[in-house]
Design a protein around this nucleic acid. Structure first.
Length: 466
DNA sequence: TGAAATGTTGGGGCG
DNA sequence: ACGCCCCAACATTTC
C-alpha cells in the first residue's frame, strides 16, 4: 500500500477535512504536525494547541508525529524515510505561509511526490470573492450580501473519512514541543474549555440548541449565553466553518440564524482582507493613519492589560481575558476602543496582547478587528467611531451581572452606580465598602476629555490624501 | 457592530 | 381657564 503524509496545521480534525480525506484515499496515512517558528504563537494559543494535539493524537490512535522546526527540512526527509508518494495539507492565506508552501510544494514535486493542497478553513476562498471589476471588497455588507452570495455556495461537509493509518512506531511526543506553560496556569484557565474536535462539536450542538434563539440581540449581552464560543475551535480548525454553516442551516430559518451565519461571514471577510493585504498585522489599511499621533504610554498600557483602568467594563473585559483566555465580543470592542481612542495607544499593542492571551488568537480576525476599531481598517462608518464605555456598560450590562463577576470589589455598588463608580455619591461608595484609589482605581483618564483628544488627533489626519 | 448636540413634543406645576 | 416654564422622553442631525 502506498503512503500518504497529511501535514496538519490549523485543521486539527478528522471530519470534513478535504486534504486529509484526499490523503486517506491515496494510501496509508502518516499524520504529521510541525511547530513552526516563523509565526510564533501566543502563550494561550500554545496551551490550547497542546490539548488539541493530544485530542487529535488520541483520535489517530497515537500515530500523530510532531516536530518542531522547518517543514522544508522535515517533510522531504519524512517522505523519503517512509516511501510516501502523496503529501497533503490545508491551505493557509497569510503571505509568509503561502510563500513557504509554494516553495515547499515545488521542492516536494521535484522529489517526485504528489502534493495536494485543499481549502479546509474557509467557506469561500479569497480568490473566489471579488467585486465585478475584479478588485477585492473593502466593506463587509456588500462583501457578504453580494460577493459571497454570488459565489458557489459553501461546500457541504464531507462524510467521515475511512482512514487507514500507517502502522509504524511513533518516536515523537507532544510533550517535547513544550507547549504547556510554566508555571502551569493552563489548568484553571482552560477549565471551561475542551480543546479538540469532540469539544468543538459539542460546543456547536450546545449553542444551536440553547443559545441560537435570541442570538441577534442576546449576542450583545456579555452575561448572556447567546454567543457560540466556537472561536478557538475554529481558529485551530477543530471544526470546519462548513460544518458550522450547514448544521446551523438545519435550524428553522430566523433572524437569529441569519445573524449567526453573518458572523461566520465576518470571519471570511477578515481572511479576504488578509489575503489581499498580507501586511495587515502591522500596516494600516488606511495609510493616512500612518500619521496618527499615537502616544507612548507604557503605564496606561499596563493598566489596560491588567484590568486596572478604573473603568469597570474595561477592567471586567481585560480580567475575563486573563482569567479565561476569552472575551465576549461586545466587550472586545469596548476595551479596544478604550485603548486606541481614549488612551491613544497604538493598536499594535492591543493586537500583541490579544495574540498572546486569547485562545482564539487568529491571524486574520485579530488584525482585521483591531484595525476596524482603530478606524484604520475596513469600516464603512463615515465618522470617527468612539465608544463610551459607560454608555456601553449601561446598555449591555444594565444589571451589572458581568461587572460583578469580573470586578468583584465593586459588587456591592447599586446597578446605577456600578458602571461609573467615580460618579457615585460618597455615601454610596462608603456603603459599598469602596475607597476609590485604594480598593479600586480612579479612572486613568477622563472619558470626556480623552474623547475630545481622540477627535483632535483624528482631525490632524482626516484631511490627508489616502 | 456610536455618541453627543440639537430639535420636538407633551405633561405637570404654578402664577 | 390660560399662558409660561421646566424637563423628561423621544427624534433628528452632525461629527
Amino acid at each position: 500500500m502506498t503512503v500518504a503524509i497529511h501535514w496538519f496545521r490549523r485543521d486539527l480534525r478528522l471530519a470534513d477535512n478535504p486534504a486529509l480525506t484526499h490523503a486517506a484515499q491515496s494510501g496509508a496515512v502518516l499524520p504529521v504536525f510541525i511547530l513552526e517558528s516563523d509565526t510564533p504563537l501566543g502563550g494561550a494559543s500554545r496551551a490550547w494547541l497542546h490539548r488539541s494535539l493530544m485530542a487529535l493524537n488520541a483520535s489517530l490512535n497515537g500515530t500523530l508525529r510532531v516536530y518542531a522546526g522547518n517543514p522544508a527540512d522535515i517533510l522531504p526527509r519524512l517522505a523519503k524515510d517512509h516511501g510516501a508518494t502523496t503529501l497533503t495539507w490545508t491551505r493557509r492565506y497569510d503571505a509568509p505561509g503561502i510563500a513557504r508552501d509554494t516553495a515547499l510544494k515545488s521542492a516536494l514535486r521535484d522529489q517526485g511526490l504528489d502534493v495536494h493542497s485543499a481549502n479546509g478553513t474557509l467557506l469561500w476562498e479569497p480568490m473566489e470573492v471579488n467585486k465585478s471589476d475584479g478588485t477585492p471588497y473593502r466593506v463587509f455588507t456588500p462583501f457578504f450580501r453580494k460577493g459571497c452570495a454570488a459565489a458557489a455556495p459553501p461546500r457541504a461537509p464531507l462524510a467521515w473519512p475511512n482512514i487507514t493509518l500507517l502502522n509504524a512506531p511513533n518516536p515523537t511526543s507532544i510533550d517535547d514541543l513544550h507547549l504547556c506553560p510554566t508555571p502551569a496556569w493552563d489548568q484553571d484557565v482552560l477549565s471551561d474549555w475542551t480543546p479538540g474536535e469532540q469539544g468543538a462539536t459539542d460546543r456547536l450542538q450546545t449553542f444551536l440548541s440553547q443559545g441560537l434563539t435570541g442570538y441577534k440581540d442576546g449576542r450583545d449581552i456579555p452575561s448572556a449565553p447567546h454567543v457560540s464560543r466556537l472561536s478557538p475551535h475554529l481558529a485551530f480548525g477543530e471544526i470546519s466553518p462548513n460544518t458550522v454553516w450547514h448544521t446551523a442551516k438545519t435550524c428553522p430559518p430566523s433572524n437569529d440564524r441569519e445573524h449567526f451565519l453573518s458572523e461566520l461571514g465576518w470571519r471570511e471577510f477578515s481572511y479576504n482582507l488578509l489575503f489581499h493585504n498580507p501586511d495587515m498585522d502591522w500596516q494600516n489599511l488606511n495609510r493616512k493613519f500612518d500619521a496618527f499621533p499615537w502616544r507612548d504610554a507604557p503605564e496606561a498600557l499596563a493598566a489596560w492589560q491588567t484590568g486596572k483602568t478604573g473603568i469597570p467594563i474595561v477592567d471586567a473585559g481585560m480580567r475575563e481575558l486573563w482569567q479565561t483566555g476569552y472575551m465576549h465580543n461586545r466587550v472586545r470592542m469596548i476595551v479596544a476602543s478604550f485603548l486606541v481612542k481614549n488612551l491613544l495607544v497604538h493598536w499594535h499593542h492591543g493586537l500583541a496582547w490579544f495574540h498572546d492571551t486569547l485562545f482564539d488568537a487568529d491571524p486574520a480576525n485579530n488584525p482585521a478587528s483591531w484595525q476596524w476599531v482603530a478606524g484604520s481598517g475596513a469600516d464603512a462608518a463615515p465618522y470617527f467611531r468612539i465608544f463610551n464605555p459607560v454608555t456601553q456598560s449601561t446598555r449591555f450590562d444594565p444589571q451589572g451581572h458581568y461587572l460583578r463577576r469580573y470586578v468583584p470589589e465593586l459588587a456591592r455598588l447599586s446597578d446605577k452606580n456600578i458602571h461609573a463608580p467615580w460618579e457615585a455619591p460618597p455615601e454610596a461608595l462608603h456603603h459599598a465598602g469602596i475607597a476609590l484609589g485604594t480598593d479600586y482605581p480612579h479612572p486613568i483618564v477622563d472619558l470626556r476629555e480623552s474623547r475630545q483628544g481622540a477627535l483632535a488627533a483624528y482631525d490632524r489626519i482626516k484631511g490627508m490624501p489616502v
